[in-house]
Design a protein around this nucleic acid. Structure first.
Length: 263
DNA sequence: ACCCCTGTTCGGCG
DNA sequence: CCGCCGAACAGGGG
């Protein structure tokens, strides 16, 4: 379930494997690892170490000692897991980096994820796109207000899903943010009041910071008071006062909201 | 069988 | 040209 916190969790899995020699690589996959042919990633990484694990939004990349950077996107169903050094890849394991101490496994059933490496001094735009991290000081009111104005004709739900402004925010986080900010998902971004823009800013920072803090290190469960636990169930209820949530497709995605809280 | 899906990119169209 | 929207990508699960 990869959104911002799951991507950060994957980054931390890579971080735990820094500084140890890569002694073998299984890169037989040709779809998720396209355009790299089998053996290409292996010959670039065997004998090297990973030196740094980076994340921007949902994009990840690992730097190496003198080799190419290894870029990753988790797609819709990707996971990065640590396994024993004798791990045998199963059907949906698309890349395995073996160290003497462990195996680092990229698993992705649905195969929307990508593994791609890159030679050169600066990270390519595919990973490093210049969009500020939500939790950084660069994601501030002027940035948010400019972004909302630029996309004033789009429903706010669609705007919160745009990675060029809300880096790392996906479908459940977008619903969570709008529920906390008490904004109707279908409302056009240009129609938000000053108070709603302030609440949107606050809720965005809160949801990003808290989900990173709770899920990042150990995959803990978010508090029961969060909307995300209710939003998929038919008959799911608003955690505030148990009103049954409404559902519709907005901005091309299934959207859940509370008709009592969100106006 | 049929429909749904927590992401991203691209072509069509207004 | 800008920007929104639906389709496509692939496979598992309800």
């Amino acid at each position: 379930m990869p959104e911002l916190p799951e991507a950060e969790r994957a980054r931390q899995q890579i971080e735990r494997a820094l500084g140890r020699e890569i002694v073998a690589v299984d890169d037989t996959d040709v779809y998720v690892c396209r355009p790299h042919a089998p053996g290409e990633i292996a010959s670039a990484l065997i004998g090297r170490t990973l030196t740094k694990a980076n994340r921007r939004g949902k994009f990840l990349w690992a730097e190496t000692d003198g080799g190419p950077d290894l870029g990753l996107h988790l797609g819709m169903s990707g996971k990065m897991q640590t396994a024993r050094p004798d791990f045998r890849p199963q059907k949906h394991d698309h890349l395995v980096l073996y160290q003497r101490e462990r195996a680092l496994v990229f698993t992705d059933a649905r195969q929307f994820g990508r593994v791609q490496f890159h030679h050169g001094k600066t990270a390519p735009a595919w990973w490093e796109n210049g969009v500020p991290e939500i939790v950084s000081a660069k994601f501030n009111r002027p940035f948010l207000d400019r972004f909302l104005h630029r996309h004033r004709k789009a429903p706010i739900k669609a705007v919160v899903l745009m990675q060029s402004g809300f880096s790392g925010i996906g479908n459940w986080m977008a619903d969570e943010i709008l529920w906390r900010a008490k904004i109707l998902p279908a409302k056009l971004a240009g129609k938000l009041s000053a108070r709603e823009r302030a609440e949107l800013f606050r809720a965005t920072k809160f949801v990003a910071r808290e989900s990173l803090r709770i899920i990042g290190p150990d995959d803990s469960t978010l508090p029961r008071t969060w909307l995300t636990h209710e939003r998929w169930r038919v008959g799911g209820k608003c955690p505030r006062h148990k009103t049954v949530l409404r559902r519709a497709t907005i901005g091309g995605r299934t959207t859940a909201w509370c008709p009592k809280c969100q106006k």
